Amino acid sequence: METKMLDTHIPLPLADRLDALALDLALPRDVIVTEAITAWLDSEERRRITTLRTLAAANTIVVVAHDRVIDWADSL
């Protein structure tokens, strides 16, 4: 798989946490960062799809005649 180098500045406390986790798991930092970015992107994509589906459902208006609602309520 081809890769692309990304440079970023992260707060020192976050960098310290990343270094500690990499040491504890005996994994390179780039593996942890790649997994974290993948999980975040997957989550955001699922959230976006859910939002779009919810908006589509909200735009679908179902009109029920008042008499049918009364008949249904009376049947309870």
Rank of each mutant, 00 (worst) to 15 (best):
M1L: 13
E2M: 05
E2A: 15
T3K: 05
L6G: 03
T8K: 09
T8Y: 13
H9P: 10
H9S: 14
I10D: 08
I10C: 12
I10K: 07
P11K: 15
P13Q: 05
P13L: 13
P13K: 05
A15R: 08
D16M: 11
D16H: 06
D16Y: 07
D16N: 08
R17M: 10
R17Y: 00
D19G: 12
L21R: 04
A22W: 00
L23S: 09
D24R: 11
A26Q: 10
A26N: 14
L27D: 03
P28Y: 00
P28E: 02
R29D: 13
I32M: 11
V33I: 13
V33E: 02
E35P: 04
I37C: 07
I37E: 11
L41T: 04
L41G: 03
L41R: 09
D42K: 06
S43L: 08
E45D: 08
E45W: 12
R47Y: 10
R48Y: 13
R48I: 09
I49K: 06
T51M: 12
T51K: 12
L52V: 07
L52N: 08
R53D: 08
T54V: 13
T54P: 00
L55W: 04
L55I: 10
A57P: 01
A57S: 08
A58C: 02
I61P: 01
I61L: 09
V62K: 03
V63Q: 08
A65C: 11
H66Q: 07
D67A: 05
I70L: 05
D71C: 09
W72Q: 01
A73L: 15
S75W: 01
S75R: 06
